[in-house]
Design a protein around this nucleic acid. Structure first.
Lengths: 150, 150
DNA sequence: TCTTCTTTGTTGAGCGTTCAACTATTCGAG
DNA sequence: CTCGAATAGTTGAACGCTCAACAAAGAAGA
């Protein structure tokens, strides 16, 4: 007994699909062009830059960026090769690894941030009213909450 | 002169990022598990199934699915190898190709649809009020409209 | 303690996407 | 009618992600 989508839902679902895909692709392309990295990597650098001493456990970084451990492992390997991130052994858990943002990584991030933020503003916020921004926040938080339930 | 994000915008942006990524990953994983194809391929089959005679020009199909021509070319190659899509020469334009859904492809889609729609309902619509669904539609349409401007 | 279960992080293969380059065909200005 | 520009679609390499398998170390219970 499938609960099919009614026309309104169908339209909403397709609109959401098209919009989020187009937005992410646009920002990803801009970041790749201007900073030489995909958006997922940028996010990793951001989270590290906000952490105390600019370092985080791999697992915590994975949670913060909403990525799998495997994905993060591969990503940090690339970021390390680029000289933007370094690994260190965790002093309190010998299984653990810390990822830490290098000075070079911080400089790269600082150089990329204004352009990217401008992109987010132009492509996302400039299209919405302040009421819609508020709605989008509530919707997104409800969604995340719902998805992390069972 | 960077127009930075204020705390509300920051929160909205990160919430949207987390939610849309989590939603898409969940649906993609379910579809891969239950139907053996990624969501992008499912969408191709859906669009073909809705087209007159279940066939579309490659370029039109690319537009409808919001994908690049290259992406679609690779994707259709895979779908063709799976026996779900066939290519035909376009009678009116010798550069053109038509992609058409095979009987087998249609059957696969018909088998996959109920599960996927149920997933969309559970993970998206069940989390939102009817007012929020309406808001999300308006926001998404505004976004798509804005992104396809210049 | 010994044993088992869980957690942490990595690895390699396979897949899908991007990007740039390319062929083939059609369009359109002169 | 012709020739340069635009359009349709494909290709291969590089890249990032997923998945399953794995090793190493901690946690928990007898």
């Amino acid at each position: 007994m499938t609960r099919w989508l009614n026309p309104d839902e169908q339209r909403t679902w397709r609109a959401f699909l098209a919009a989020s895909r187009a937005l992410m692709e646009t920002l990803d392309r801009e970041l790749q062009r201007d900073a030489g990295m995909p958006h997922a990597y940028y996010e990793i650098l951001v989270r590290l830059s906000e952490a105390p001493e600019r370092r985080l456990r791999m697992s915590e970084l994975a949670d913060l960026t909403g990525s799998s451990r495997s994905r993060l492992s591969h990503a940090v390997a690339r970021l390390e090769a680029a000289g933007w991130v370094r690994r260190e052994d965790c002093p309190t858990d010998r299984r653990g690894q810390l990822a830490l943002l290098t000075e070079e990584g911080f400089a790269t991030l600082a150089a990329a941030a204004p352009g990217h933020v401008e992109g987010v503003r132009r492509h996302l916020f400039d299209a919405l009213s302040t009421a819609q921004v508020d709605q989008l926040r509530r919707i997104s938080e409800a969604l995340t909450d719902h998805l992390s339930r069972p």
